[in-house]
Design a binder for these strands. Structure first.
Length: 276
DNA sequence: CGCCAGGGTCTCG
DNA sequence: CGAGACCATGGC
Protein backbone atom coordinates (compact mmCIF):
# COMPACT_ATOMS: atom_id res chain seq x y z
CA UNK A 1 0.00 0.00 0.00
CA UNK A 2 1.35 3.43 -0.86
CA UNK A 3 2.50 5.59 1.99
CA UNK A 4 -0.36 7.99 1.38
CA UNK A 5 -2.91 5.16 1.18
CA UNK A 6 -5.30 6.72 3.66
CA UNK A 7 -9.03 6.50 3.10
CA UNK A 8 -12.21 8.12 4.34
CA UNK A 9 -14.60 5.19 4.17
CA UNK A 10 -17.80 7.05 4.97
CA UNK A 11 -17.20 9.69 2.34
CA UNK A 12 -16.11 7.09 -0.20
CA UNK A 13 -19.14 4.85 0.31
CA UNK A 14 -21.81 7.51 0.85
CA UNK A 15 -20.89 10.23 -1.60
CA UNK A 16 -23.17 8.96 -4.34
CA UNK A 17 -20.85 6.71 -6.34
CA UNK A 18 -22.27 3.46 -5.00
CA UNK A 19 -25.58 2.80 -3.33
CA UNK A 20 -25.44 -0.57 -1.64
CA UNK A 21 -22.95 -0.29 1.23
CA UNK A 22 -24.19 0.00 4.78
CA UNK A 23 -22.66 0.76 8.13
CA UNK A 24 -23.00 -1.83 10.86
CA UNK A 25 -23.67 -1.05 14.49
CA UNK A 26 -19.99 -1.69 15.28
CA UNK A 27 -18.89 0.92 12.75
CA UNK A 28 -17.66 -1.47 10.07
CA UNK A 29 -19.06 -1.27 6.53
CA UNK A 30 -20.42 -4.18 4.57
CA UNK A 31 -21.19 -4.45 0.92
CA UNK A 32 -20.60 -6.37 -2.26
CA UNK A 33 -17.78 -6.06 -4.74
CA UNK A 34 -19.38 -7.55 -7.79
CA UNK A 35 -20.74 -10.72 -6.21
CA UNK A 36 -18.18 -10.96 -3.43
CA UNK A 37 -19.10 -10.05 0.12
CA UNK A 38 -16.74 -7.73 1.95
CA UNK A 39 -16.59 -6.12 5.38
CA UNK A 40 -14.17 -3.29 5.95
CA UNK A 41 -13.33 -0.87 8.71
CA UNK A 42 -11.45 2.37 8.88
CA UNK A 43 -8.96 2.71 11.68
CA UNK A 44 -6.83 5.82 11.95
CA UNK A 45 -7.55 6.57 8.31
CA UNK A 46 -6.28 3.14 7.25
CA UNK A 47 -8.31 0.32 5.79
CA UNK A 48 -8.81 -2.97 7.59
CA UNK A 49 -10.34 -5.81 5.65
CA UNK A 50 -12.44 -7.90 8.04
CA UNK A 51 -13.96 -10.11 5.38
CA UNK A 52 -13.17 -10.58 1.72
CA UNK A 53 -9.89 -10.76 -0.13
CA UNK A 54 -7.44 -7.91 0.05
CA UNK A 55 -6.67 -8.46 -3.64
CA UNK A 56 -10.30 -7.69 -4.44
CA UNK A 57 -10.95 -4.93 -1.92
CA UNK A 58 -7.84 -2.85 -2.52
CA UNK A 59 -8.34 -2.21 -6.24
CA UNK A 60 -12.10 -1.69 -5.75
CA UNK A 61 -11.47 1.05 -3.21
CA UNK A 62 -8.62 2.38 -5.36
CA UNK A 63 -6.06 2.31 -2.56
CA UNK A 64 -3.42 2.65 -5.27
CA UNK A 65 -4.62 6.12 -6.30
CA UNK A 66 -1.95 8.62 -5.26
CA UNK A 67 -4.18 11.09 -3.47
CA UNK A 68 -1.37 13.51 -2.61
CA UNK A 69 -0.46 13.81 -6.27
CA UNK A 70 -4.13 14.19 -7.22
CA UNK A 71 -4.69 16.90 -4.62
CA UNK A 72 -1.60 18.70 -5.84
CA UNK A 73 -3.34 19.13 -9.19
CA UNK A 74 -6.45 20.77 -7.71
CA UNK A 75 -6.84 24.51 -8.08
CA UNK A 76 -6.21 26.29 -4.79
CA UNK A 77 -9.25 28.51 -4.61
CA UNK A 78 -11.40 28.75 -1.53
CA UNK A 79 -14.23 26.58 -2.87
CA UNK A 80 -11.97 23.71 -3.85
CA UNK A 81 -9.94 23.85 -0.65
CA UNK A 82 -13.09 23.71 1.46
CA UNK A 83 -14.30 20.68 -0.49
CA UNK A 84 -10.91 19.01 -0.14
CA UNK A 85 -10.83 19.57 3.59
CA UNK A 86 -14.33 18.11 3.91
CA UNK A 87 -13.74 15.06 1.69
CA UNK A 88 -10.07 14.25 2.25
CA UNK A 89 -9.54 10.51 1.79
CA UNK A 90 -12.54 10.04 -0.49
CA UNK A 91 -11.49 7.63 -3.24
CA UNK A 92 -13.04 7.03 -6.64
CA UNK A 93 -14.21 3.42 -6.55
CA UNK A 94 -13.54 1.06 -9.46
CA UNK A 95 -17.06 -0.21 -10.04
CA UNK A 96 -18.05 -3.05 -12.34
CA UNK A 97 -18.95 -1.28 -15.58
CA UNK A 98 -22.39 -2.76 -16.09
CA UNK A 99 -23.50 -2.21 -12.51
CA UNK A 100 -22.38 1.40 -12.73
CA UNK A 101 -23.93 2.15 -16.10
CA UNK A 102 -27.23 0.56 -15.14
CA UNK A 103 -27.38 2.35 -11.80
CA UNK A 104 -26.85 5.75 -13.36
CA UNK A 105 -29.45 5.11 -16.04
CA UNK A 106 -31.89 4.88 -13.14
CA UNK A 107 -30.50 8.01 -11.51
CA UNK A 108 -32.01 10.72 -13.69
CA UNK A 109 -34.14 13.21 -11.78
CA UNK A 110 -33.83 11.16 -8.61
CA UNK A 111 -32.33 11.96 -5.25
CA UNK A 112 -29.50 9.82 -3.91
CA UNK A 113 -31.85 8.22 -1.39
CA UNK A 114 -34.18 7.18 -4.20
CA UNK A 115 -31.38 5.74 -6.28
CA UNK A 116 -30.46 3.64 -3.29
CA UNK A 117 -34.06 2.42 -2.98
CA UNK A 118 -34.30 1.46 -6.63
CA UNK A 119 -30.93 -0.27 -6.50
CA UNK A 120 -31.98 -2.24 -3.44
CA UNK A 121 -35.28 -3.23 -5.05
CA UNK A 122 -33.58 -4.34 -8.28
CA UNK A 123 -31.02 -6.35 -6.36
CA UNK A 124 -33.69 -7.98 -4.18
CA UNK A 125 -35.83 -8.91 -7.14
CA UNK A 126 -33.36 -9.78 -9.88
CA UNK A 127 -29.97 -10.15 -8.23
CA UNK A 128 -28.19 -13.33 -7.26
CA UNK A 129 -28.03 -14.32 -3.61
CA UNK A 130 -24.58 -14.25 -2.05
CA UNK A 131 -23.39 -16.65 0.61
CA UNK A 132 -22.87 -15.16 4.03
CA UNK A 133 -25.05 -12.06 3.67
CA UNK A 134 -28.55 -10.94 2.80
CA UNK A 135 -27.11 -8.46 0.31
CA UNK A 136 -27.70 -9.43 -3.29
CA UNK A 137 -25.54 -8.87 -6.32
CA UNK A 138 -26.57 -6.22 -8.82
CA UNK A 139 -28.65 -7.94 -11.52
CA UNK A 140 -26.82 -8.97 -14.66
CA UNK A 141 -27.74 -7.46 -18.00
CA UNK A 142 -29.25 -10.83 -18.88
CA UNK A 143 -31.51 -10.78 -15.84
CA UNK A 144 -32.75 -7.27 -16.54
CA UNK A 145 -33.16 -7.98 -20.25
CA UNK A 146 -35.47 -10.83 -19.35
CA UNK A 147 -37.57 -8.69 -17.00
CA UNK A 148 -40.70 -6.94 -18.19
CA UNK A 149 -41.04 -3.20 -18.13
CA UNK A 150 -43.74 -3.55 -15.48
CA UNK A 151 -41.38 -5.64 -13.35
CA UNK A 152 -38.90 -2.79 -13.43
CA UNK A 153 -41.56 -0.16 -12.79
CA UNK A 154 -42.50 -2.14 -9.70
CA UNK A 155 -39.01 -1.34 -8.42
CA UNK A 156 -39.82 2.35 -8.56
CA UNK A 157 -38.10 3.15 -11.86
CA UNK A 158 -40.98 4.98 -13.52
CA UNK A 159 -40.16 6.09 -17.06
CA UNK A 160 -36.57 4.89 -16.60
CA UNK A 161 -37.73 1.27 -16.78
CA UNK A 162 -37.87 1.22 -20.56
CA UNK A 163 -34.37 2.67 -20.90
CA UNK A 164 -32.82 0.25 -18.44
CA UNK A 165 -34.48 -2.71 -20.12
CA UNK A 166 -33.46 -1.66 -23.63
CA UNK A 167 -29.87 -1.04 -22.58
CA UNK A 168 -29.77 -4.39 -20.78
CA UNK A 169 -30.99 -6.08 -23.94
CA UNK A 170 -28.25 -4.51 -26.04
CA UNK A 171 -25.60 -5.64 -23.58
CA UNK A 172 -27.04 -9.10 -22.98
CA UNK A 173 -27.40 -9.81 -26.69
CA UNK A 174 -23.82 -8.84 -27.39
CA UNK A 175 -24.90 -6.02 -29.68
CA UNK A 176 -22.89 -3.83 -27.34
CA UNK A 177 -19.76 -5.02 -25.52
CA UNK A 178 -18.71 -3.02 -22.47
CA UNK A 179 -15.45 -4.96 -22.28
CA UNK A 180 -14.45 -3.91 -25.77
CA UNK A 181 -15.63 -0.38 -25.13
CA UNK A 182 -13.15 -0.09 -22.29
CA UNK A 183 -10.37 0.01 -24.87
CA UNK A 184 -11.75 3.15 -26.51
CA UNK A 185 -10.35 6.62 -26.04
CA UNK A 186 -12.37 8.93 -23.82
CA UNK A 187 -14.23 10.75 -26.59
CA UNK A 188 -15.09 7.54 -28.42
CA UNK A 189 -16.15 5.82 -25.24
CA UNK A 190 -18.44 8.73 -24.35
CA UNK A 191 -19.95 8.62 -27.80
CA UNK A 192 -20.52 4.88 -27.58
CA UNK A 193 -22.12 5.16 -24.14
CA UNK A 194 -24.45 7.91 -25.35
CA UNK A 195 -25.91 5.49 -27.88
CA UNK A 196 -27.61 3.59 -25.10
CA UNK A 197 -31.17 4.73 -24.46
CA UNK A 198 -31.36 6.82 -21.30
CA UNK A 199 -27.68 7.74 -21.50
CA UNK A 200 -26.78 11.33 -22.27
CA UNK A 201 -23.66 13.30 -21.56
CA UNK A 202 -24.06 13.36 -17.78
CA UNK A 203 -24.80 9.67 -17.28
CA UNK A 204 -22.05 8.75 -19.75
CA UNK A 205 -19.58 10.80 -17.73
CA UNK A 206 -20.67 9.06 -14.52
CA UNK A 207 -20.15 5.67 -16.13
CA UNK A 208 -16.75 6.76 -17.43
CA UNK A 209 -15.63 8.13 -14.08
CA UNK A 210 -16.98 5.41 -11.80
CA UNK A 211 -17.09 2.38 -14.08
CA UNK A 212 -14.30 2.86 -16.61
CA UNK A 213 -11.64 4.55 -14.51
CA UNK A 214 -11.63 7.73 -16.58
CA UNK A 215 -10.63 10.14 -13.84
CA UNK A 216 -10.88 13.20 -16.05
CA UNK A 217 -14.60 12.68 -16.79
CA UNK A 218 -16.63 15.50 -15.29
CA UNK A 219 -20.36 14.85 -14.80
CA UNK A 220 -22.43 18.05 -14.56
CA UNK A 221 -25.60 17.56 -12.53
CA UNK A 222 -27.78 20.16 -10.82
CA UNK A 223 -25.49 20.39 -7.78
CA UNK A 224 -22.27 20.79 -9.73
CA UNK A 225 -24.02 23.20 -12.04
CA UNK A 226 -24.87 25.41 -9.07
CA UNK A 227 -21.35 25.26 -7.67
CA UNK A 228 -19.77 26.00 -11.01
CA UNK A 229 -22.06 28.90 -11.82
CA UNK A 230 -21.65 30.41 -8.40
CA UNK A 231 -17.89 30.07 -8.01
CA UNK A 232 -16.30 29.48 -11.38
CA UNK A 233 -18.39 30.77 -14.29
CA UNK A 234 -17.35 34.26 -15.37
CA UNK A 235 -19.45 34.67 -18.51
CA UNK A 236 -22.45 36.93 -18.54
CA UNK A 237 -24.72 34.53 -20.36
CA UNK A 238 -26.29 31.53 -18.71
CA UNK A 239 -24.03 28.55 -19.42
CA UNK A 240 -25.25 25.19 -20.67
CA UNK A 241 -24.08 22.09 -18.83
CA UNK A 242 -21.81 21.34 -21.77
CA UNK A 243 -20.24 24.78 -21.55
CA UNK A 244 -19.56 24.27 -17.87
CA UNK A 245 -18.01 20.90 -18.52
CA UNK A 246 -15.84 21.90 -21.46
CA UNK A 247 -14.88 25.43 -20.48
CA UNK A 248 -14.26 24.87 -16.81
CA UNK A 249 -13.55 21.21 -16.14
CA UNK A 250 -10.22 21.33 -17.97
CA UNK A 251 -8.99 23.74 -15.30
CA UNK A 252 -9.20 20.94 -12.78
CA UNK A 253 -6.58 18.90 -14.59
CA UNK A 254 -6.28 15.23 -15.54
CA UNK A 255 -8.09 14.20 -12.35
CA UNK A 256 -10.99 16.61 -12.83
CA UNK A 257 -13.42 13.84 -11.95
CA UNK A 258 -11.92 13.65 -8.46
CA UNK A 259 -12.35 17.40 -8.02
CA UNK A 260 -15.90 17.15 -9.30
CA UNK A 261 -16.81 14.47 -6.77
CA UNK A 262 -15.32 16.47 -3.90
CA UNK A 263 -17.26 19.58 -4.95
CA UNK A 264 -20.44 17.54 -5.36
CA UNK A 265 -20.25 15.77 -2.02
CA UNK A 266 -19.27 18.88 -0.10
CA UNK A 267 -22.06 20.95 -1.63
CA UNK A 268 -24.67 18.28 -1.08
CA UNK A 269 -23.70 17.67 2.54
CA UNK A 270 -23.31 21.27 3.62
CA UNK A 271 -26.11 22.92 1.65
CA UNK A 272 -28.41 20.00 2.19
CA UNK A 273 -31.66 21.53 3.21
CA UNK A 274 -30.99 25.15 2.45
CA UNK A 275 -31.69 26.42 -1.01
CA UNK A 276 -29.56 27.77 -3.82
C1' DC B 1 -49.27 21.20 -1.43
C1' DG B 2 -45.60 22.68 -4.60
C1' DC B 3 -41.03 22.04 -5.40
C1' DC B 4 -36.98 19.48 -6.50
C1' DA B 5 -34.08 15.50 -7.35
C1' DG B 6 -26.46 13.09 -9.70
C1' DG B 7 -31.43 14.01 -16.97
C1' DG B 8 -32.74 12.36 -21.60
C1' DT B 9 -35.19 13.25 -25.62
C1' DC B 10 -38.06 15.52 -28.74
C1' DT B 11 -40.07 19.73 -30.68
C1' DC B 12 -40.16 24.33 -32.00
C1' DG B 13 -38.29 28.96 -32.90
C1' DC C 1 -27.96 26.28 -31.54
C1' DG C 2 -31.10 27.22 -27.35
C1' DA C 3 -35.28 27.05 -24.65
C1' DG C 4 -39.46 24.24 -23.13
C1' DA C 5 -42.37 20.24 -22.46
C1' DC C 6 -42.72 15.90 -20.97
C1' DC C 7 -41.51 11.91 -18.69
C1' DA C 8 -42.67 8.94 -12.94
C1' DT C 9 -41.73 8.88 -8.27
C1' DG C 10 -40.92 10.15 -3.50
C1' DG C 11 -39.31 13.25 0.32
C1' DC C 12 -39.86 17.37 2.45
Amino acid sequence: MPRNGHINLRATLECGQVFHWRERADGAWEGLIGDQFAVVREEERRLLVLEGREAVVAPYLALDHDLDAIYAGFPEDETMLAALEFCRGLRMIRQPAWECLATFITSSMKQVAHIRQMSTALRARFGRAVRGTDLRAYPTAEALAAATEDDLRACGLGYRAKNLRSTAQRVASGQADLGKMSALEDAELREALCEFPGVGRKVANCAMLFGFGRLSAFPVDTWISRVMKRHYWRGRKKPTPLALEENLASRFGPHAGYAQQYLFHHARMTQGKGRR
